[in-house]
Design a protein around this nucleic acid. Structure first.
Length: 280
DNA sequence: CGGCAAACCTGCGAGC
DNA sequence: TGCTCGCAGGTTTGCC
């Protein structure tokens, strides 16, 4: 489900409900996510106040009073929902429930159980194995065209798979890589180290733009993603290429009669969507 | 080291 | 209706 914009949307949705509130009860109904939830999680979180919610790439960070944090990854299908008043009857795949002072309950639901919930000391979150190897935040000051150029110059794999590598840039996933490459006019098949400097500049801009626009739209709702409030994100309506195989290219308007319009190919086992005419 | 397929797990839509 | 197949927003592992 979630790439950087979806996780940021979740963070913003949970922030007003959780920040400053004390956790009254934690209930873990299933511990066997991608990594098992440690058995001490309930005891270590109950009674603690939540100081702030952060995000690093696709990881949500819950910072507690007292120097402990919870590192959360939503995997492919993880989501949070907020309930006011009495906690609801648990639904299928509701794995973790947090009841906070004031009456709200936040429920983590994850059908595929690729998600993670890992406690860590706040001071050590950046160096935690989950986060230590991540590349720069694409919307942060450590990411620009120069940094990206240096990364791509030593990569011989296709630009598409290179951008999915979280050590190159942190937070991009399949959707936003496809969309950024379209905006930059770069073929997903092109070797990363052969993308020209001017195109890398456009790519860095395209990455920042598409992520910023997607966050503003509340992320993309394909099947699972919801904002914690229950609202859908709506950036999926603005996809230029993702999941649009066979449609006309929104830029050059080419279609089946010319180059085939938006094409779907498979790279490293994942779908790539692009316009072979506009993207070189 | 690099790159790719498979694995992890469940659900859904398409096609028969 | 009901089965099977392929596919899905992520990450890690293991093999060549």
């Amino acid at each position: 489900m979630p790439e950087l914009p979806e996780v940021e949307t979740v963070r913003r949705g949970l922030e007003p409900v959780l920040t400053g509130r004390r956790i009254e009860r934690v209930e873990v109904r299933r511990r066997d996510l991608r990594l098992p939830i440690p058995s001490g999680l309930e005891a270590s979180m109950t009674g603690r106040r939540i100081e702030s919610l952060g995000r690093r790439a696709k990881f949500l960070l819950v910072h507690l009073e007292g120097g402990d944090s919870l590192i959360v990854h939503l995997g492919m299908s993880g989501r949070f929902r907020i309930f006011d008043g009495a906690p609801p009857e648990p639904e299928t795949h509701d794995h973790v429930l947090f009841a906070v002072e004031g009456g709200a309950t936040v429920v983590f639901n994850d059908p595929r159980r690729f998600g993670m919930m890992i406690p860590a000391r706040t001071a050590e979150t950046d160096s935690h194995p989950c986060l230590a190897g991540l590349g720069p935040e694409p919307l942060g000051p450590a990411f620009d065209a120069t940094v990206l150029r240096a990364q791509l110059a030593r990569r011989k794999s296709p630009i598409k798979t290179t951008l999915l590598d979280q050590t190159v840039v942190a937070g991009l996933g399949n959707i936003y890589v496809c969309e950024a490459l379209f905006r930059a006019g770069i073929s997903p098949r092109r070797r990363a180290d052969t993308v020209g400097a001017a195109k890398v500049d456009r790519l860095a801009d395209a990455i920042r733009e598409v992520l910023t626009e997607a966050i503003a739209a509340g992320g993309s709702s394909l099947r699972d993603h919801r904002q914690p409030s229950g609202e859908l994100g709506y950036f999926q309506h603005r996809f230029a290429v993702y999941d649009r195989a066979g449609e006309r290219c929104p830029d050059c308007d080419c279609d089946l009669a010319s180059t085939g319009g938006i094409q779907r190919i498979v790279q490293a086992g994942r779908s790539t969507f692009y316009c072979a005419r506009r993207q070189r």
